[in-house]
Design a binder for these strands. Structure first.
Lengths: 154, 154
DNA sequence: AAAAATTACTTCAAACATCAAAATATTTAA
DNA sequence: TTAAATATTTTGATGTTTGAAGTAATTTTT
């Protein structure tokens, strides 16, 4: 295979990465949640709707210093997106939750992602999609330092 | 197609995005350029080796505030990666270039990307790769607000 | 050609993000 | 019951980002 194709795919991936960073933020700035930065949205996303994660879980998930998360949560709580809930069993832990407003943001962001993936996969057959998924798996393996179990064909 | 697959692919894409952000930075921290952040590397990359872009071109390309680029370039110039060249025709214009050290970073980062794409595409046939490229095109179209010319099959 | 508008970039002040280390509160182990 | 461990917050220091105002050079208009 020619390196040209790889080079071209690389450029496109870089472009996609950049676009996602920019567009996610701008999309939301236009809506009713213009007081949120992309980092805050990612924090809201990590906190998530469906369980009450602890502060340390969330800070690990986001790979940020616990002190940084405290500051972020302070801001998000002040703006009315996030709640702190004191743990019941263990009163040292803080469990984080979303307010109604926080849940709207969560859903809006989720729907952006759904649309994005829908478009990404538009027009491909099931077989082709499973192929694409395999390529993404390769990428994840590379990124997470796992050797790729290459399904070589002859 | 079941939404499960899409949901799974979405999760993987999010993971890949997060990994790329984290890993690119850590990779470089280990090497001889540990005084650079990921944003600085992306700036070096945008400034690029092959032409002398202007400040505004670069700040547009990175979608950052011009003032932010000024600060970034100040830092990169101080650390010896980037040069400012006053424009010859129009003396308002600043053209940006890389020092020898800046060019090394550029090449190191490029080789990381080459490895990443190689692994991403490992084990796929040419046909499959062109399929994957098409999916990435879809994604870019979506991100950049272009309608997708769907190649629907029956 | 002088004044006005435009442009390319920089500076500034304020908000926010980040980290390591110390402090606080709570729980568990000795 | 004291000591050690854990979960989070505070503190202080440093860096990043932004919008808006400022400076300088160029182009357009009158």
């Amino acid at each position: 295979m020619t390196g040209d194709v790889k080079q071209r795919i690389n450029t496109k991936l870089v472009q996609a990465y950049r676009d996602i960073t920019n567009i996610e933020e701008k999309e939301l700035k236009k809506g009713p949640f213009s007081d949120l930065s992309i980092k805050e949205i990612h924090a809201i996303n990590a906190i998530s709707m469906y369980e009450h994660k602890t502060s340390s879980q969330v800070s690990k998930e986001l790979s940020i210093n616990p002190g940084t998360l405290t500051a972020t949560v302070n801001n998000l709580a002040r703006k009315g997106y996030v709640l702190r809930l004191r743990g019941e069993h263990d009163r040292r832990v803080i469990r984080l939750g979303l307010t109604r407003k926080g849940r709207s943001v969560y859903r809006l962001h989720a729907s952006f992602h759904r649309k994005m993936v829908d478009t990404f996969l538009q027009g491909f057959s099931d077989h082709e999609i499973s192929l694409i998924e395999k390529a993404i798996d390769h990428l994840l393996n590379f990124l997470e330092g796992r050797p790729n179990t290459v399904s070589t064909r002859i």
